[in-house]
Write a protein that binds this DNA or RNA. Structure first.
Length: 420
RNA sequence: GGAGGCGUGGCCGAGUGGUUGAAGGCAGCAUCCUGCUAAGAUGUUGUGGGAGAAAUCCCAUCGGAGGUUCGAAUCCUCCCGCCUCCGCCA
């Protein structure tokens, strides 16, 4: 959630911030109006409660018909105002939920992804002396990806990984977790179910994100869309000691996404699916260090892709293409020859105090005050997309696929599909 | 899925309707005292919100949400979490 005090103190800055994210700044005024109304009710309630407390204390000393009837009347008034206060409180919360995190000053302003800023391109795009195949053609030919049977079993946008396809996933997970853990990240296997209240606190049910989540009504639980969703709440309602910061975690989980609104988009292969596995980095940081930690996350992402010997580029997302909870975001886009394009394989976000306020994760300042931490999340390896990149970039004329050197020790071979 | 128990401040732990925001202990902080990596005495110490320049005052808060009552940590309902036993299960 956005910091309410900040909105009250400097509404113009908030308006300017959300406008950059293509959100109507009038929503700020709407919130402030409700906030004023709500506060007046809260204050009135406080006063009436005080009167009631006084009356109760007198009644405790001696019973009196007069006082009793007075207290009963007061009780009725309090319950009436409480009803009003509750209604306003709900409306106020709804209004607050319509406000996304505001971007940092240094984030490039833009409408949509077309205005993202390319920071650098790294690595050589492969040049083929034959017509390269896309990952699905390769995967099917090698017998390591099967989307047809998956569709019959589970529906569209699911896949089987078989044989070396499955082995490739295990190799990528081990490589990624090992590499990331070396930077001081604690490996975590988090829950893949989450309570609505907690997911809400992470800001992941706000706006149209709700449509993206799988919900299990019988159990009143959501399936996570990323390990991020349950890594953040690892320190819910906690005040972390400064010596323990930054806390860095590397999680592994399946991710479940409805892909609502993307019907017909990226239908081929396994680029956009309802279920995939991902290694995810997550950091709890002091506010003044979060920019530094953000750069660390980005550098680790680049380290991973470089070690996999894949061509990629780094883009800084413009304000209009940033996530709801993000104050600053980078994407790593890996070159996919099958699409003849760079496609997003990694995302790297500083959410400042937007999520930490929702899950109440704090630290103590030098002055002893408790303040919200900054939370950061970043893709380690999105397995499916990285498999696509490896297949398409490393394919040979013979239809085999060379395994990146760093994965060979985990695969026990150098090539997929080679005749032995 | 069935049966039962429990959930109080940083920790331990009293408290079954009325000056209880909460005894007592530990820990923390401050002062005093004592010459020997320690002990003692006294005071002080939760969180959130609101008013105020401040001292201070008011409200809320005893897992969470409701309910009963003039009044609830204490009674009732639902939920969450932990523990024990049975069943099932990787």
């Amino acid at each position: 959630m956005l910091n309410v005090n900040l909105i009250r103190e400097n509404p113009e800055a908030i308006k300017a911030g959300i406008a950059k994210k293509n959100i109507d700044p009038k929503l700020v005024d709407k919130f402030l109006r409700l906030d004023v109304d709500w506060r007046s009710k809260t204050e009135a309630l406080g006063q009436l409660n005080g009167e009631q407390n006084t009356l109760s204390k007198e009644l405790a000393k001696k019973q009196s018909e007069d006082l009793l009837s007075k207290a009963q009347l007061l009780k009725k008034r309090i319950s009436d105002i409480t009803v009003e206060e509750n209604k306003l409180s709900v409306k106020r919360d709804e209004a607050l939920e319509k406000l996304p995190n505001i971007p940092f000053e240094d984030v490039p302003v833009g409408k949509d992804a077309s205005q993202n800023v390319v920071l650098r391109e790294v690595g050589e795009k492969p040049i083929f002396d034959f017509k390269p195949k896309d990952h699905l053609a390769l995967g099917e030919a090698l017998g390591i990806i099967d989307v047809k049977r998956a569709a019959e079993v589970a529906g569209a946008r699911f896949n089987y990984l078989l044989g070396d396809g499955a082995m490739l996933e295990f190799a990528l997970v081990q490589f990624a977790v090992k590499t990331i853990a070396a930077h001081g990240f604690t490996p975590v296997l988090p829950p893949m179910f989450i309570k609505p209240q907690v997911l809400h606190g992470m800001g992941r049910l706000a706006s149209d994100q709700k449509e993206e989540r799988y919900y299990l009504p019988k159990d009143e639980q959501y399936l996570i869309g990323s390990a991020e969703h349950t890594l953040g709440p690892l320190h819910m309602d906690e005040v972390l000691s400064n010596e323990s910061l930054p806390k860095r975690y590397v999680g592994f989980s399946s991710c479940f996404r409805r892909e609502a609104g993307s019907y017909g988009k990226d239908m081929k292969g396994i680029l956009r699916v309802h279920q995939f596995d991902k290694v995810e980095m997550f950091i709890f940081s002091l506010p003044e260090k979060s920019d530094e930690e953000h750069q660390l996350l980005l550098s680790i992402q680049e380290e991973l892709v470089k070690k996999l010997e894949l061509p990629y580029r780094v883009v800084q997302n413009c304000t209009g293409d940033m996530g709801w909870v993000d104050a600053k975001q980078f994407d790593v886009e890996t070159w996919l020859p099958g699409q003849d394009a760079y496609r997003e394989t990694h995302s790297c976000s500083n959410t400042t105090d937007f999520q930490s306020s929702g899950i109440n994760a704090k630290y103590k300042t030098a002055g002893g005050k408790k303040e919200y931490l900054h939370l950061l999340n970043a893709t380690g390896i999105a397995i499916g997309r990285m498999i696509i990149a490896i297949l398409e970039n490393n394919q040979t004329k013979e239809g085999t696929v060379k395994i990146p050197k760093v994965l060979q020790e985990f695969m026990g071979k150098e090539e997929i599909g080679a005749r032995s």
